[in-house]
Protein backbone atom coordinates (compact mmCIF):
# COMPACT_ATOMS: atom_id res chain seq x y z
CA UNK A 1 0.00 0.00 0.00
CA UNK A 2 1.06 3.52 -0.79
CA UNK A 3 1.39 4.82 2.76
CA UNK A 4 2.16 2.81 5.85
CA UNK A 5 3.28 3.05 9.46
CA UNK A 6 4.35 0.58 12.14
CA UNK A 7 3.14 1.16 15.71
CA UNK A 8 3.86 -0.60 18.97
CA UNK A 9 1.42 -0.03 21.80
CA UNK A 10 2.29 -2.00 24.89
CA UNK A 11 2.98 -5.55 23.73
CA UNK A 12 0.99 -5.25 20.49
CA UNK A 13 2.58 -4.25 17.17
CA UNK A 14 0.42 -3.01 14.29
CA UNK A 15 1.13 -2.36 10.62
CA UNK A 16 -1.29 0.22 9.25
CA UNK A 17 -1.46 0.74 5.49
CA UNK A 18 -3.49 3.42 3.75
CA UNK A 19 -4.49 4.53 0.27
CA UNK A 20 -4.13 8.13 1.48
CA UNK A 21 -1.32 9.99 3.23
CA UNK A 22 -3.42 11.96 5.72
CA UNK A 23 -4.41 9.19 8.17
CA UNK A 24 -0.81 7.94 8.32
CA UNK A 25 0.46 11.46 8.96
CA UNK A 26 -2.06 11.85 11.77
CA UNK A 27 -0.94 8.57 13.33
CA UNK A 28 2.69 9.59 12.98
CA UNK A 29 1.93 12.72 14.94
CA UNK A 30 -0.10 11.02 17.67
CA UNK A 31 2.46 8.28 18.19
CA UNK A 32 5.67 10.27 17.66
CA UNK A 33 6.98 9.57 21.16
CA UNK A 34 6.47 5.82 21.01
CA UNK A 35 9.36 3.42 20.36
CA UNK A 36 9.37 1.96 16.86
CA UNK A 37 8.27 -1.65 16.58
CA UNK A 38 10.81 -4.30 15.62
CA UNK A 39 10.27 -7.53 13.80
CA UNK A 40 7.02 -8.75 12.36
CA UNK A 41 3.77 -6.97 13.36
CA UNK A 42 1.03 -8.82 15.21
CA UNK A 43 -1.73 -7.30 13.07
CA UNK A 44 -2.23 -5.55 9.75
CA UNK A 45 -4.83 -2.84 9.23
CA UNK A 46 -5.76 -1.52 5.78
CA UNK A 47 -7.50 1.78 5.14
CA UNK A 48 -8.80 1.30 1.61
CA UNK A 49 -10.84 3.10 -1.01
CA UNK A 50 -14.10 1.17 -1.44
CA UNK A 51 -13.84 1.53 -5.20
CA UNK A 52 -10.77 2.72 -7.12
CA UNK A 53 -12.33 6.10 -7.98
CA UNK A 54 -13.32 6.68 -4.35
CA UNK A 55 -9.73 7.42 -3.62
CA UNK A 56 -10.40 10.90 -5.00
CA UNK A 57 -14.17 11.38 -5.47
CA UNK A 58 -16.00 11.73 -2.10
CA UNK A 59 -13.17 9.78 -0.56
CA UNK A 60 -14.44 7.08 1.70
CA UNK A 61 -12.30 4.86 3.93
CA UNK A 62 -13.14 1.18 4.25
CA UNK A 63 -11.57 -0.35 7.34
CA UNK A 64 -10.05 -3.74 6.55
CA UNK A 65 -7.16 -5.89 7.65
CA UNK A 66 -6.38 -9.31 9.07
CA UNK A 67 -9.85 -9.34 10.62
CA UNK A 68 -12.79 -7.67 8.93
CA UNK A 69 -16.33 -6.86 9.97
CA UNK A 70 -18.31 -7.26 6.74
CA UNK A 71 -21.07 -4.91 7.84
CA UNK A 72 -18.72 -2.07 8.87
CA UNK A 73 -19.62 1.25 7.24
CA UNK A 74 -16.87 3.28 5.59
CA UNK A 75 -15.82 6.63 7.04
CA UNK A 76 -14.99 10.02 5.56
CA UNK A 77 -11.36 10.58 4.76
CA UNK A 78 -11.49 13.51 7.19
CA UNK A 79 -11.99 10.92 9.95
CA UNK A 80 -9.20 8.70 8.72
CA UNK A 81 -7.39 8.61 12.06
CA UNK A 82 -10.61 7.35 13.67
CA UNK A 83 -10.80 4.68 10.98
CA UNK A 84 -7.28 3.61 11.90
CA UNK A 85 -8.23 3.41 15.58
CA UNK A 86 -11.31 1.34 14.76
CA UNK A 87 -9.16 -0.91 12.59
CA UNK A 88 -6.64 -1.50 15.35
CA UNK A 89 -9.38 -2.13 17.94
CA UNK A 90 -10.96 -4.66 15.62
CA UNK A 91 -7.77 -6.64 15.07
CA UNK A 92 -7.09 -6.81 18.78
CA UNK A 93 -10.69 -7.64 19.69
CA UNK A 94 -11.10 -10.40 17.11
CA UNK A 95 -7.59 -11.83 16.93
CA UNK A 96 -5.95 -11.64 20.33
CA UNK A 97 -5.37 -14.92 22.12
CA UNK A 98 -2.38 -14.15 24.34
CA UNK A 99 -4.27 -12.17 26.97
CA UNK A 100 -7.81 -11.97 28.28
CA UNK A 101 -9.17 -8.72 26.84
CA UNK A 102 -11.49 -6.60 28.93
CA UNK A 103 -13.31 -3.54 27.66
CA UNK A 104 -11.92 -1.36 30.44
CA UNK A 105 -9.58 1.48 31.22
CA UNK A 106 -6.75 0.93 33.67
CA UNK A 107 -4.31 2.99 35.74
CA UNK A 108 -1.48 1.95 38.03
CA UNK A 109 -0.12 3.10 41.36
CA UNK A 110 2.57 1.44 43.46
CA UNK A 111 2.70 -1.57 41.16
CA UNK A 112 -1.02 -2.31 41.49
CA UNK A 113 -3.68 -1.76 38.85
CA UNK A 114 -7.12 -0.20 39.03
CA UNK A 115 -9.40 -1.61 36.33
CA UNK A 116 -12.49 0.36 35.31
CA UNK A 117 -14.91 -1.58 33.15
CA UNK A 118 -17.81 -0.03 31.30
CA UNK A 119 -19.53 0.66 28.00
CA UNK A 120 -19.24 3.83 25.98
CA UNK A 121 -20.64 6.67 28.05
CA UNK A 122 -19.65 5.19 31.40
CA UNK A 123 -16.79 7.68 31.55
CA UNK A 124 -14.09 5.09 32.04
CA UNK A 125 -11.73 6.66 29.49
CA UNK A 126 -12.07 10.18 30.87
CA UNK A 127 -11.66 8.95 34.44
CA UNK A 128 -8.47 7.13 33.54
CA UNK A 129 -7.14 10.19 31.73
CA UNK A 130 -7.91 12.45 34.71
CA UNK A 131 -6.36 10.04 37.22
CA UNK A 132 -3.26 9.99 35.01
CA UNK A 133 -2.85 13.72 35.70
CA UNK A 134 -3.00 13.06 39.44
CA UNK A 135 -0.10 10.73 40.04
CA UNK A 136 -1.45 7.51 38.54
CA UNK A 137 0.20 5.89 35.53
CA UNK A 138 -2.12 5.46 32.55
CA UNK A 139 -2.16 1.84 31.38
CA UNK A 140 -5.01 2.08 28.90
CA UNK A 141 -8.33 3.78 28.06
CA UNK A 142 -10.13 1.06 26.09
CA UNK A 143 -8.63 -2.40 26.61
CA UNK A 144 -7.15 -4.03 29.68
CA UNK A 145 -4.97 -7.05 28.86
CA UNK A 146 -4.86 -9.72 31.57
CA UNK A 147 -1.98 -12.19 31.50
CA UNK A 148 -3.32 -15.75 31.34
CA UNK A 149 -0.52 -17.22 33.44
CA UNK A 150 0.01 -14.58 36.13
CA UNK A 151 -3.23 -12.58 36.18
CA UNK A 152 -1.24 -9.35 35.83
CA UNK A 153 -2.59 -6.46 33.79
CA UNK A 154 -0.48 -5.34 30.80
CA UNK A 155 -0.57 -1.75 29.58
CA UNK A 156 -2.04 -0.87 26.20
CA UNK A 157 -1.69 2.94 26.34
CA UNK A 158 -2.95 4.02 22.96
CA UNK A 159 -3.92 7.65 22.32
CA UNK A 160 -7.09 8.15 24.34
CA UNK A 161 -10.19 8.79 22.28
CA UNK A 162 -12.21 11.61 23.88
CA UNK A 163 -15.66 12.59 22.70
CA UNK A 164 -17.79 15.72 22.99
CA UNK A 165 -17.91 17.08 26.56
CA UNK A 166 -15.03 14.86 27.67
CA UNK A 167 -12.74 16.87 25.37
CA UNK A 168 -13.56 20.11 27.17
CA UNK A 169 -13.20 18.38 30.55
CA UNK A 170 -9.72 17.06 29.74
CA UNK A 171 -8.54 20.40 28.34
CA UNK A 172 -8.81 21.59 31.94
CA UNK A 173 -6.41 18.88 33.14
CA UNK A 174 -3.88 18.35 30.35
CA UNK A 175 -1.86 20.74 28.14
CA UNK A 176 -3.29 21.33 24.68
CA UNK A 177 0.00 20.23 23.14
CA UNK A 178 -0.91 16.66 23.98
CA UNK A 179 -4.14 16.75 22.01
CA UNK A 180 -4.50 15.73 18.38
CA UNK A 181 -6.62 17.54 15.83
CA UNK A 182 -10.34 17.85 16.52
CA UNK A 183 -12.62 15.80 14.27
CA UNK A 184 -16.20 16.95 13.86
CA UNK A 185 -19.18 15.10 12.46
CA UNK A 186 -17.91 11.64 13.30
CA UNK A 187 -20.45 8.87 14.04
CA UNK A 188 -19.80 9.65 17.73
CA UNK A 189 -19.83 13.44 17.45
CA UNK A 190 -16.76 15.57 18.19
CA UNK A 191 -13.64 13.57 18.73
CA UNK A 192 -10.11 14.40 19.81
CA UNK A 193 -7.21 12.15 20.73
CA UNK A 194 -5.12 12.76 23.85
CA UNK A 195 -1.56 11.48 23.74
CA UNK A 196 -0.49 9.64 26.90
CA UNK A 197 2.18 11.43 28.96
CA UNK A 198 5.84 10.50 28.83
CA UNK A 199 5.67 8.22 31.89
CA UNK A 200 2.86 6.13 30.46
CA UNK A 201 4.82 5.61 27.26
CA UNK A 202 8.17 5.00 28.95
CA UNK A 203 6.72 2.39 31.29
CA UNK A 204 4.28 0.73 28.93
CA UNK A 205 5.97 -2.65 29.23
CA UNK A 206 5.57 -2.78 33.04
CA UNK A 207 2.69 -5.00 34.16
CA UNK A 208 0.75 -4.50 37.41
CA UNK A 209 -1.40 -6.84 39.50
CA UNK A 210 -5.07 -5.80 39.60
CA UNK A 211 -6.08 -4.67 43.09
CA UNK A 212 -9.50 -3.13 42.49
CA UNK A 213 -12.18 -3.40 39.81
CA UNK A 214 -14.70 -0.61 39.35
CA UNK A 215 -17.84 -0.38 37.27
CA UNK A 216 -18.19 3.38 36.95
CA UNK A 217 -21.40 4.98 35.72
CA UNK A 218 -21.43 8.68 34.95
CA UNK A 219 -24.51 10.74 35.63
CA UNK A 220 -26.05 9.61 38.91
CA UNK A 221 -25.80 10.78 42.51
CA UNK A 222 -22.61 9.70 44.25
CA UNK A 223 -22.78 6.07 45.32
CA UNK A 224 -20.44 3.13 45.80
CA UNK A 225 -21.62 -0.42 46.32
CA UNK A 226 -19.61 -3.62 46.59
CA UNK A 227 -20.45 -6.10 43.80
CA UNK A 228 -20.57 -9.84 44.39
CA UNK A 229 -18.11 -12.04 42.51
CA UNK A 230 -20.80 -13.84 40.53
CA UNK A 231 -22.22 -10.60 39.17
CA UNK A 232 -18.73 -9.24 38.51
CA UNK A 233 -17.89 -12.44 36.65
CA UNK A 234 -20.92 -12.24 34.39
CA UNK A 235 -20.43 -8.55 33.67
CA UNK A 236 -16.77 -9.05 32.85
CA UNK A 237 -17.52 -11.90 30.44
CA UNK A 238 -19.83 -9.46 28.68
CA UNK A 239 -17.05 -6.87 28.72
CA UNK A 240 -14.59 -9.29 27.13
CA UNK A 241 -14.19 -9.78 23.39
CA UNK A 242 -12.24 -13.01 23.70
CA UNK A 243 -13.34 -14.79 26.89
CA UNK A 244 -15.16 -17.54 24.97
CA UNK A 245 -12.45 -18.33 22.43
CA UNK A 246 -9.81 -18.60 25.16
CA UNK A 247 -11.53 -21.65 26.61
CA UNK A 248 -10.07 -23.04 29.82
CA UNK A 249 -7.38 -20.37 30.07
CA UNK A 250 -10.01 -17.63 29.94
CA UNK A 251 -12.13 -19.39 32.56
CA UNK A 252 -9.20 -19.86 34.95
CA UNK A 253 -8.00 -16.29 34.51
CA UNK A 254 -11.36 -14.62 34.98
CA UNK A 255 -12.52 -16.79 37.90
CA UNK A 256 -9.24 -16.08 39.63
CA UNK A 257 -9.57 -12.35 38.94
CA UNK A 258 -13.06 -11.93 40.39
CA UNK A 259 -12.46 -14.13 43.41
CA UNK A 260 -9.22 -12.40 44.41
CA UNK A 261 -9.90 -8.75 43.53
CA UNK A 262 -12.76 -6.68 45.05
CA UNK A 263 -15.32 -5.15 42.69
CA UNK A 264 -17.31 -1.97 43.32
CA UNK A 265 -20.10 -0.33 41.31
CA UNK A 266 -19.66 3.45 41.39
CA UNK A 267 -22.09 6.19 40.36
CA UNK A 268 -20.82 9.73 40.06
CA UNK A 269 -22.22 13.13 39.01
CA UNK A 270 -18.87 14.67 38.02
CA UNK A 271 -15.21 13.81 37.59
CA UNK A 272 -14.02 15.46 40.83
CA UNK A 273 -16.41 13.30 42.85
CA UNK A 274 -15.29 10.21 40.98
CA UNK A 275 -11.62 10.92 41.64
CA UNK A 276 -12.30 11.42 45.35
CA UNK A 277 -14.28 8.16 45.47
CA UNK A 278 -11.49 6.28 43.73
CA UNK A 279 -8.85 7.59 46.14
CA UNK A 280 -11.06 6.66 49.08
CA UNK A 281 -11.72 3.13 47.84
CA UNK A 282 -8.07 2.62 46.98
CA UNK A 283 -6.87 3.76 50.39
CA UNK A 284 -9.34 1.42 52.06
CA UNK A 285 -7.88 -1.65 50.36
Amino acid sequence: MRHAIGLKIGPVAFRVGSDWAAPIAALQSLYRDYPAPVGVPDYTVRLEAERPWRRWVRPSVAVRGDYILPEALPLDLAHGVLAAEIGMNLQLALGERRWLLLHASSVERDGRALIMSGESGSGKSTLAAVLATRGWRLMGDEFALIDLATGAARAFPRATSLKNAAIDEMLRHAPEARFGAELTGTPKGRLRHLRPDATAIARMDEPAMPALILFPQYGGAEAAEGMGSAEAFVRLTQASTNYGPLGRAGYDTLTRLVTTVPTVAVDYPDTATAVALVEQLWDAL
Binding site: S229, F233, G247
Partner: peptide, 20 residues
Amino acid sequence: MPSVTMEGFAVVFHAASGAT
Protein backbone atom coordinates in the same frame (compact mmCIF):
# COMPACT_ATOMS: atom_id res chain seq x y z
CA MET B 1 -16.06 -30.07 35.00
CA PRO B 2 -13.91 -27.60 36.88
CA SER B 3 -16.11 -25.54 39.15
CA VAL B 4 -15.63 -22.34 41.13
CA THR B 5 -18.23 -21.39 43.72
CA MET B 6 -19.22 -17.73 43.73
CA GLU B 7 -21.96 -16.54 46.05
CA GLY B 8 -23.67 -19.90 45.97
CA PHE B 9 -23.47 -20.31 42.20
CA ALA B 10 -21.32 -23.01 40.66
CA VAL B 11 -19.40 -21.48 37.75
CA VAL B 12 -18.39 -24.47 35.66
CA PHE B 13 -16.30 -24.89 32.53
CA HIS B 14 -17.43 -27.47 29.98
CA ALA B 15 -14.30 -28.48 28.05
CA ALA B 16 -15.96 -30.13 25.04
CA SER B 17 -17.95 -27.04 24.11
CA GLY B 18 -15.67 -24.45 25.66
CA ALA B 19 -18.73 -22.90 27.29
CA THR B 20 -18.98 -21.54 30.82
